[in-house]
Write a protein that binds this DNA or RNA. Sequence first.
DNA 1: CTGAAAGCGCTTACAG
DNA 2: CTGAAAGCGCTTACAG
Lengths: 355, 355
Amino acid sequence: MAYFHPSRPSPYMPQRKRLTLKDLAAEIDVHYSTVSRVMNPATRHLVAEDVAARVLAVAEARGFSPNRIAAGLRTQRSGLIGVVLPDIANPVFPPILAGIEVVLAQQGYVPIVVNAGSDKGRQRFVIDQLLGRQVEGLVLATAEREDPVLEYCLARHVPVVTVNRGEGSGSVSSVVSDSVRAMQLTVDHLMELGHRRIGHIAGPASLSTGYLRREGFIQAVRRHRLRRADWHVVEASSYSRNAGRVACAQLMTVFPALTAIAAANDLVAMGCYDYLREQGLRCPDDISVIGHNDMPFVDALTPPLTTIRIAVHEMGEEAARLLLRKISKPASDPVTVQLQPHLIVRGSTAAPRMA
Amino acid sequence: MAYFHPSRPSPYMPQRKRLTLKDLAAEIDVHYSTVSRVMNPATRHLVAEDVAARVLAVAEARGFSPNRIAAGLRTQRSGLIGVVLPDIANPVFPPILAGIEVVLAQQGYVPIVVNAGSDKGRQRFVIDQLLGRQVEGLVLATAEREDPVLEYCLARHVPVVTVNRGEGSGSVSSVVSDSVRAMQLTVDHLMELGHRRIGHIAGPASLSTGYLRREGFIQAVRRHRLRRADWHVVEASSYSRNAGRVACAQLMTVFPALTAIAAANDLVAMGCYDYLREQGLRCPDDISVIGHNDMPFVDALTPPLTTIRIAVHEMGEEAARLLLRKISKPASDPVTVQLQPHLIVRGSTAAPRMA
DNA sequence: CTGAAAGCGCTTACAG
DNA sequence: CTGAAAGCGCTTACAG
């Protein structure tokens, strides 16, 4: 296993040497510990007002700000949080990230974001790097229902929270959107429009979202007393447009009588659009399609996609809050926060054609 | 001005105390400087092979990795790069970020990403935070043609590179897509289809992209010898869908005879779609529209958007490379790297209706 | 090849 | 209210 090491110190001066407490202290003719006390608002009151004012003035003039790394070494708090993403190009993540960042910034923390893909070995490697950089906690958007990486973090006693996706054991805090409720909304909407033969393209069952949306779908169709022959589930190999296209083809083959498709997410729904268009079928005239997530710009598709809006920004905020709480109270129990999803009705769902 | 300070040390143990060189050394019964030499591949050869092997084995078993923060303090290299984004929700940035991260990771660096909006004061604040955290350099995606923040960075001798957007002075390295060339491609394409009355919705002139795409447009229509009455430019107030809609309305009012619109980016082009639809006009039948950037999923719009693809991921990679070079050779001159854009013809452009 | 020592820039008990 | 000192966890000249 490879550890990272800083390369040997550079033979040049990378930039004008940054000012230190000592430099400033020399200039003002006080001890540098006094400067330190002034620079920190929490200890500023320990210093005489006029001295503090002088220090502040010089600091401002010289553009001095204390070295947080050195401070972190001393205080054992880096102020760094690691954020591990499976794929930052997936449009769900940027707003989650933005939410995380806002809350962290309020507490003087800053995120280190890494794109780790979905390989567990790589994720673990990346987490080791992050730990080597003394992150105080981790937000994982990569969680699976059974996740060795999560266990690894637990074993190392790193504060962790999972975002968007949950895990099975209940031993780590999670912030997720309520998938079961979302599928209830989805199926209710479709039934209300008059659909009685409904297909679901599920996400991977290894992910909580894939698993729970499927469970929610099944619960919902049962609650509506649909006969077993009148609903069907097919699993997409991944949350992608192409996997959605493939799964849609499969679903239509095994269940040609369906009039509506509930897709596990918007990317999958876009794959359905692709397949239907290829087949010369029209949405919603021939088949209704409903997505999940309300990704940016799905309202600009033709037809505009009916979908489930999840509270992405809040999800990030809440995850950051939970993590910060865990960091300050390590004994606190893991909690799962479920955010409420909303149905957004647009043009891709309509009453089924009369048979 | 507020500086951030770590809060007082927590009264609890945030997690099982992390191992240090000394802990490990005690366990193996060697001096901790020996462990240090072994942990760093570059100095490992200084240690006897059998000792090194023993150290490595124990390190592996105990999951030890050295504290990069402490090392950074000693070596004066944090291994941190600040990345300042105007808005991470804009789909151009995630792939740029991914490109940056890949190259940084190869050199053992890690990015700290901050969403700074477009307010210059806030950007400066955020940069101060980043400098306090000892970032070794900055990638700015927030540059304007005349940018006080850039001057601030220059004055502080921080290695900086600008990505996606350039600046006017030529005193900092930039990686951008060739906007002038892109507009040449755009106008060529439209002319080839037979359009002879073309409008351009420009981006804000304060941004290099807005300015240069407009310049490129004007050069291109002149090269094609379009008379002054046969082209027109309107400036959108921002790179957004709504600003595009508003600007489109304005353009169509002042230049109702146009048959094609070259939009400064895809968001603006989507705003054109919105406006045309409102007016009952059809694209491309009544009006052709061409975008810029080739954002994800614009191929799924109706009609699929003809646009200019820019090399986003490479832009990020190249920016990181340039910055790393500047860090290792501070005296190196600023360079501007222009990446070549490509025309992607889809369904939103067609021959104009015969008048 | 290995150890002992100095020092990176801070914070914070401890004196005075 | 201010200073002097110790120490956070490393790296690396310097001895031996």
